[in-house]
């Protein structure tokens, strides 16, 4: 589904990614963990070209992203992204947030978009918030609308960039619950998170990154119970 080879990314002289190789299969849930500054978010943002890689290859469903002939907008339409800071459109209601991209990018009718929007709001448990503006929603509710907004494009892959890091602790659960449902339905997901419980419960594979490299990867049990790498050991000892 996602194939990344030799991915490098630098910002000027600062090297953030130093050769990432990674393959994500359909329906797989990959959790990326690592200390801050290890390049997790940059890696994720390269997968939908919000950051342009310095070198390397990325392909999604066989379509190479770095090929100049590839229309990046149509690739992005199939890759949903959920941000740490939600990034809902503040001038639009929850429903309008969800409907905007299907209306403008896929050109579906208003009626279809709205019924899609309502069904997605129901899915994330916010049926009663359709006509509410983001600033009247709690953080957890905003993030659930943001997930629904990404799902509205019927993506093949969902990327989550620390989706619960900006939330008050009591709201983390409701967002993780929505993500677990998605994983159960067979969505292909790449999740950057500090929620080790989620990684263990939902992740098919866990990737540990440090200093722009994948240092260790494996099943959650392998990584959490029998870590081999010293940096992973010290990382886990600090957070568990």
């Amino acid at each position: 589904m996602i194939r990344v080879e030799g991915l490098h990314k630098g910002f000027g002289r600062l090297k953030v990614l130093n050769g990432i190789d990674c393959h994500v299969s359909p329906r797989e849930v990959v959790v990326v963990i690592g200390p801050s500054g290890s390049g997790k978010s940059t890696f994720l943002r390269c997968i939908n070209m919000l950051e342009e890689p310095t070198a390397g290859k990325i392909s999604i469903d066989g379509v190479s992203l770095l090929d100049p002939k590839t229309n990046i907008n149509s690739v992005r339409a199939e890759v949903g992204m959920v941000f740490q800071r939600f990034n809902l459109f503040p001038h639009k209601t929850a429903l309008e947030n969800i409907c905007l991209a299907p209306l403008k990018v896929k050109n579906i009718s208003k009626g279809d978009a709205e019924s899609l929007g309502h069904s997605l709001l129901k899915k994330v448990g916010l049926s009663d918030k359709a006509n509410v503006y983001p600033d009247q929603l709690s953080g957890g509710q905003q993030q659930r609308v943001a997930i629904a907004r990404a799902l509205a494009m019927q993506p093949k892959v969902m990327l989550f960039d620390e989706p619960t890091s900006a939330l008050d602790p009591e709201m983390v659960g409701e967002v993780l619950a929505v993500m677990k449902d998605l994983a159960r339905e067979g969505m292909t997901m790449v999740v950057v998170t500090h929620e080790m419980g989620f990684a263990r419960e939902v992740g098919d594979r866990v990737i540990f990154m440090d200093e722009g490299l994948i240092v260790e990867e494996g099943t959650p049990d392998e990584l959490f119970l029998e870590p081999r790498n010293n940096r992973l050991k010290s990382f886990l000892s600090k957070i568990l």
Binding site: N48, L50, N73, S74, R76, A77, E78, V79, G80, M81, F83, R85, N87, L88, F89, L100, A101, K104, V105, A146, R149, A150, M153
Partner: peptide, 17 residues
């Protein structure tokens, strides 16, 4: 905020959209 454009682009919108 930059995140607004990023969210819009991540949904497949062109920069003018």
């Amino acid at each position: 905020e930059k995140g607004q454009v990023e969210a819009a682009r991540s949904l497949g919108m062109t920069s003018s959209q």
